[in-house]
């Protein structure tokens, strides 16, 4: 691995001033599960690495009914997947966290790191966007808040400015009769990067779809809303026909590429199948008012 200088700032302003000083040649280190791999494989060769894990007070995960869920920038995927409130109210995020990498990775990896790496296949992005999350940052010019949907500009690219650090993710509290699902398509039960990811957050009003957000992963340079599909459903009665029409619309709207994980055609077809499945599951969950996943069994080898 190529050598670099290493820093452990004690405060956010100190971290920001280091970033400013090194002007694009420094990388933030959180869990390191993306960054260290990239340095070892010479995808990224920073001269300076700034570890923010010594900054106190960034590892929280809290919830209140008014502000919703707050995920500090050092909260790990393991904290997220074991949080009762996430399991209860943020089922899509829960499922994404639970299927990310392996337990070893989840013990180190942060949600903020997953977001800042901005991989088109990143798992927590679709459910967080479906849940209408907001990202909060701190930088040379102070604080900003950005709707997560607007955060990504391309593979590995975000609207973060030089010197800016992601400090918190805010996810609104779900209204009653909301169902959430994240479905990840991969060949294995663990240690998989999504070939396709589909997140749905859907709220029912009787048999009518009051609101729905459908977000697709790994089928475009950034996670994308399947807005055509959403339009078909919003304000209408739920029907099998509408679900199929919406699934087809999601398929038509996505823009996948072909790679070793799957051809573009396969990905498109899987968007259709998985959008249909995710919609049906989220409708069921919204009706029952609970999470569609069996959370009593842990992911252990028996």
């Amino acid at each position: 691995m190529r050598p670099f200088d290493y820093f452990e700032p004690a405060t956010l302003p100190e971290a920001v001033s280091l970033l400013e000083r090194f002007d694009g040649r420094a990388s933030i280190l959180a869990g390191g599960t993306d960054l260290l791999v990239e340095i070892k494989e010479r995808i990224r060769l920073p001269d300076h690495v700034i570890n923010i894990k010594k900054v106190p007070g960034l590892d929280y995960l809290s919830y209140d009914p008014v502000d919703g869920l707050k995920i500090g920038s050092l909260a790990t995927l393991h904290e997220v997947e074991t949080s009762p409130v996430v399991i209860e109210k943020y089922a899509g995020l829960y499922q994404a966290a639970r299927e990310l990498g392996s337990i070893q990775v989840r013990n180190r990896a942060t949600v903020a790191g997953n977001i800042c790496r901005a991989s088109p296949s990143a798992d927590t992005l679709p459910p967080l966007i479906a849940d209408n999350a907001t990202i909060h940052t701190f930088g040379p010019d102070g604080e900003r808040s950005i709707p997560m949907e607007k955060f990504f500009t391309g593979p590995g690219k975000t609207v973060l400015l030089d010197g800016e650090i992601l400090t918190r993710i805010n996810v609104p509290s779900p209204p009653p009769n909301t169902g959430k699902v994240y479905l990840k398509l991969g060949r294995r039960a663990a240690m998989e990067l999504a070939t396709v990811g589909v997140a749905v957050t859907l709220t029912l009003d009787g048999n009518e779809c009051r609101s729905v957000r459908i977000v697709l992963g790994a089928v475009a340079p950034t996670p994308m809303r399947a807005t055509d599909a959403e339009d078909i459903l919003i304000g209408k009665a739920i029907s099998e026909n509408a679900i199929e029409e919406a699934s087809q619309a999601a398929k038509d709207q996505c823009r996948p590429i072909s790679d070793v994980r799957g051809s573009a055609d396969y990905r498109r077809e899987m968007v259709r199948v998985l959008t249909g499945r995710a919609l049906r599951m989220s409708i069921e969950a919204a009706n029952e008012g609970n999470s569609p996943f069996d959370i009593s069994t842990d992911q252990t080898v028996d």
Binding site: R187, R188, V301
Partner: peptide, 30 residues
């Protein structure tokens, strides 16, 4: 039978999945 295949680009001969990210052995859960 199902998941393992070392894929070589048919035009250039460059291996496309020379790592455990995209060369997939079944794991314990599978």
């Amino acid at each position: 039978a199902l998941t393992e295949d070392f894929i070589i680009d048919k035009k250039t001969g460059r291996p496309l999945n020379p790592s455990f990210v995209d060369y997939k052995m079944p794991l314990a859960l599978d």
